[in-house]
Design a protein around this nucleic acid. Sequence first.
RNA 1: GCGCCCGUAGCUCAACGGAUAGAGCAUCCGCCUUCUAAGCGGAUGGUUACAGGUUCGAGUCCUGUCGGGCGCGCCA
Length: 655
Amino acid sequence: MNLRNRLEKTVCNAMVAAGIPADCPAIVAPSAKAEFGDYQANGVMAAAKKLKTNPRKLAEQVVERLMGAGPDGLTDLAEKIEVAGPGFINITLSGAFAEKQLAAAAGDKEKLGAQPAQTPQTVVVDYSAPNLAKEMHVGHLRSTIIGDCLARVLPFLGHKVIRQNHVGDWGTQYGMLLAYIGTEEASPKDLEDLEQLYIKARAKFDSDPKFAKRARRKVAELQTWDEKSKHISIRTWRWLKRCFKKLLRKFMRLFGINIDYQNIKEFWGMYNAISLEKCLSVYSEKEGLGVLLNSDDTCGESFYNGDLPNVVADLRKAGLLTESQGAQCVFLPQFKGKDGEPLPFIVRKSDEGFLYATTDLAAIRYRVGTLHAGRILYVVDARQSLHFKQLFAVAGAAGFLPEDVRAEHIAFGTMMGPDGKPFKTRTGGTVKLMELLKEAEERAFKLVSEKNPDLPEDERKDIAKTVGIGAVKYADLSQNRTSDYVFSWDKMLSLEGNTAPYMQYAYARIRSIEGKAGLSEGKMPSPHAGETPTTHLKQTAVHGQDAHGTHGRDARATAEKAGAIRITEPAERALAVKILQFPETIQSVADDCMPNYLCAYLFDLAGAFMGFYESCPVLKADGPTRASRLELCRLTAAVIQKGLDLLGIKTIERM
RNA sequence: GCGCCCGUAGCUCAACGGAUAGAGCAUCCGCCUUCUAAGCGGAUGGUUACAGGUUCGAGUCCUGUCGGGCGCGCCA
């Protein structure tokens, strides 16, 4: 159950029943302080202002309704509802309600109390989107990690997510490469070669205007190559080149002859295959980050190539197109550039080449028309916000983006260098993603070997991988995505405080308690949220056999007791309320696309557990208390595991 | 010049217009003969850049100033 929603609704009803207009929000939030109960409703004060009545008196009338039974009553879940301060309504949940809800969550291993959305949507999540021809670097981290989290959270709430990795496989950087292989003999075998080639091509592009022009023309030619008719093969071209050198280009230009782009396309395809493979290994769990993206999700710029002329034609039909300085542009009145001049949205260059504006428009049409998206999320650097504002506006004006389809730019801050300036991607000096991950694992391995030298090396390696990658992801996800951040090894790989290892540690501790409880009763606790494999699958399986073995009676007895969580101690209560807030947390992450809400929640939850851990012995308690606390442990572990899983972070059984 | 974002503890960051602005790191003091000390408890640390305004109530909304980042016609 989404507690906050339930309270919001009921308080709203009660407000209406007390004579408050229905458009006054209840404004329910978790209480700022323990003395204010579990939740506070702040809406009455504003309503009283509107009605020009005494806010406290009005709040009392609302509370009166809340105390009654029926649709505007909270008697089933609250043990105390009171007016405080100038007109706050403070709500304290009853222990009985909490116990009931915890039992329900415990019985719902998959969702842990979260309910599917009433209106499931098809959500396209556009994320990662590296430029091919270059190896992925730390600048690609945020989009990949944040997008991946959203791609996990939304399906958890019953939405259908279609991942789209809009890789850069078509733009000017490819023109550069293809123009470059026209001047040099070059056939890269791996990404290393390709990257060297790219660096050389880039340097030539930046320093040689003629080459730059040729590269741009190459893009335009490539994009419109189907329209051309005269071709020669690249082999022929090379042969001719050897024979005639300087004369050749003039000759070709004079007669409008191009290289056979089918061959060029083969080169292009080879480059893509090489770089894409490397990207996929960065995405893979085995070698890299462990994100959901796979080759099926790759849908790069080139995918839309055939549709680009249509996009421009349709814009023309819609009367949106204007030619300006030889380029095809859309001018919308709300966008102004320098000196108040209208700001163009250029869809076709004067050399007839298309741009990412065109590609993005084609992508919107595809996502709306073919993928049937109800919501489209673009997890892209904040610096592109103007582009997306224009894109959505133009797409709307052209009828590509219906009003009921939400397109959102999920902007994130720039990765800054230690000098406070943005990391430069073009002139080198970047940290490769694979190197970052390796370093993370090494640091984690050092630490785990220090803390737990008795564990076998293989296990320490596994732990290091999970902890290291988790730390990298968590460092990013726990931060408000809209702010810039300075890249720092120490910060990113920190393993203390509000970090993934803290959460993983909390989890491991709980599992350790459960393990010990299981041993003493001849039963391993039921594996929860079981679809996520852990490094200790083997161990769990061994104990799992025990459960079906000779100790069946004990196991059954434990299972019977398991549902009965009894809340008596304050620390138990605090933990219980936190657990019940899992559904509403996930909901707000999905609504606002803010993974840091989930991190903050998990940190609170872990904190609540630590408090419980310190003050409420589990294994030493007896009878029903022991069973209750054990169940509370299981549930906490399940929520932590699921929460981390939604962040894309794995748990381990020991660390 | 115009536009967007930002300015909160020494550092890194939180805080649907709500009550006495919170964490982590760092510093200092305690806690391993009791379920993992990657932990827990406590202390120190703030005129939320500045000045006005809106209102029952402002870190949050509005205006201005200062400071920083980014963007603004054929790159993505």
